[in-house]
């Protein structure tokens, strides 16, 4: 009985689809536009409550409950929105010392984060401490250049993920910073660090060529730029040494930028690097507009920052 029901259902759907197919063909000549909104944070460092009125630097700024209302209003305006974090979710207030990151992950899940990458401080309670909090995170951890195969985190992170939002394929991968010398080796254990540039090249190939993504985003905890250490790898270098990345969302250096930075990639194409300070003081917002009108797309992509 059940199988028959299924067959009947299936044929009915097929009929609908074939009609729909014709419909789509006739529609395909009519140009239409789509908008994808990317919201992002970095280095929130357990700052759950807003800064108090007497704070010397950021009085009355930040706070998860306020960030939630900002995100909610943007999602109402455009439901085709992804919310991302570039790492260092943990460490900085007693909430982390007391609850080990549980509250941070629970709140990010309530805010419906779609993905995050890991920062060095996310290892501060040890890789076991991080693992213990994973049940509280209803979003994916995307790490492309950490090999966790000999650790408890094995299979609990993804090297990349493709989100399909309003028919637009968005590929996301994640780059973490070298942990040696920065994190106690007892805390990251046998996590292996892979070369970020080689990893980025491999990830963009997979996302662009194999998955035909319309948009590629790199979540990075490498740091924006190191003035005093010009040879140190950073987001600006990843941006200029690779191709096919549309946006790098950075963290680690707690960089406040007056506006997102436009960088020319290895093919001289313009792309964006952004970072929004730390402690949840700001929310980054990048809007990508797509059009099926050939005349519009012939003019290339305009970047307004």
């Amino acid at each position: 009985m059940k199988r028959r029901d299924f067959i009947q259902q299936a044929s009915a759907t097929t009929a609908l689809i074939s009609l729909g197919g014709i419909g789509l063909h006739s529609f395909s000549n009519k140009p239409s536009a789509k908008q994808i909104t990317i919201l992002h944070t970095n280095d929130v460092h357990s700052h759950i409550d807003p800064f108090g009125p007497d704070d010397g630097k950021y009085p009355n700024m930040g706070g998860v409950a306020r960030r939630a209302s900002l995100i909610e209003s943007i999602r109402r305006e455009n439901p085709n929105t992804l919310l991302l974090d570039a790492g260092d979710i943990f460490q900085g207030t007693p909430y982390f010392n007391y609850y080990g990151g549980e509250l941070e992950f629970k709140l990010m899940s309530m805010l419906k984060y779609d993905a995050a990458t890991l920062g060095n401080h996310d290892f501060d309670a040890g890789i076991d401490g991080l693992y213990a909090q994973l049940p509280h995170a209803k979003f994916d951890f995307i790490c492309s250049n950490y090999d966790f195969s000999n650790t408890i985190m094995d299979t609990h992170t993804k090297p990349y993920k493709v989100f399909t939002v309003d028919g637009i394929k968005i590929g996301i991968f994640g780059l973490g910073i070298k942990l040696k010398g920065l994190v106690d080796s007892d805390n990251y254990k046998e996590t292996t660090y892979l070369d970020p540039i080689e990893t980025a090249q491999e990830m963009t190939r997979i996302l662009k060529t194999e998955n035909a993504c319309d948009l590629i985003i790199c979540l990075s905890h490498l740091g924006y730029h190191y003035k005093k250490e010009p040879n140190k790898l950073c987001d600006l270098k990843v941006a200029s040494l690779t191709k096919d990345i549309d946006l790098i969302i950075g963290g680690h250096t707690h960089t406040f930028l007056p506006k997102p930075t436009v960088v020319k990639n290895s093919e001289e194409k313009s792309m964006l690097v952004n970072q929004v300070g730390w402690h949840g003081i700001n929310l980054g917002r990048i809007d990508f507009y797509f059009d099926s009108d050939k005349n519009k797309s012939a003019n290339g992509t305009s970047i307004i920052v």
């Binding site: 997102p260 990508f288 992509t301 307004i304």
Partner: peptide, 10 residues
Amino acid sequence: YHLTKIEGKQ
């Protein structure tokens, strides 16, 4: 669909 415009702010 082709990417025609990017807007970024904080």
